Simulated scan of single mutants.
Amino acid sequence: MSGTTSDYVKMAAEVDRLDEEGRRDEAVSLAREVAEQARNADDEGFALFFSGESLCLEGNLEGGETLIRQAAAALPGETLVLVNHAIVLSLLGKTRRAVQILNRSLELKPDDLVALGQKGVCLAKLGYGRESLEAFDRILALDPDNLHALRNRGVALSRLGREKEAMACFDKALAADPADPHAQSEKKILEEEMRLKGTPLGWMVIWARKKVAPAFKRAANPLG
Results as ranks from 00 to 15, higher is better:
residue 4 T to F: 02
residue 11 M to R: 04
residue 16 D to P: 05
residue 18 L to C: 05
residue 21 E to F: 00
residue 32 R to H: 07
residue 33 E to L: 12
residue 35 A to S: 14
residue 36 E to D: 14
residue 39 R to L: 13
residue 43 D to C: 11
residue 44 E to T: 15
residue 45 G to C: 13
residue 45 G to E: 06
residue 52 G to R: 11
residue 54 S to V: 03
residue 59 G to Q: 01
residue 70 Q to L: 11
residue 72 A to V: 03
residue 73 A to P: 05
residue 74 A to L: 12
residue 77 G to R: 03
residue 79 T to V: 15
residue 94 K to W: 05
residue 101 I to L: 04
residue 103 N to M: 03
residue 104 R to V: 04
residue 106 L to Y: 02
residue 106 L to A: 01
residue 110 P to D: 04
residue 112 D to A: 03
residue 124 A to V: 05
residue 125 K to Y: 15
residue 126 L to Y: 14
residue 131 E to Y: 09
residue 133 L to V: 09
residue 135 A to M: 13
residue 137 D to V: 12
residue 139 I to Q: 01
residue 139 I to S: 01
residue 144 P to A: 10
residue 147 L to Q: 13
residue 148 H to A: 13
residue 155 V to S: 10
residue 158 S to A: 15
residue 158 S to L: 13
residue 161 G to I: 11
residue 161 G to H: 10
residue 167 M to D: 13
residue 167 M to P: 10
residue 171 D to H: 13
residue 174 L to R: 06
residue 178 P to G: 11
residue 183 A to I: 00
residue 187 K to S: 10
residue 190 L to V: 14
residue 190 L to K: 11
residue 193 E to I: 10
residue 193 E to F: 11
residue 194 M to S: 07
residue 197 K to T: 05
residue 200 P to F: 05
residue 201 L to E: 15
residue 210 K to A: 05
residue 214 P to E: 12
residue 218 R to F: 03
residue 221 N to P: 07
residue 222 P to D: 08
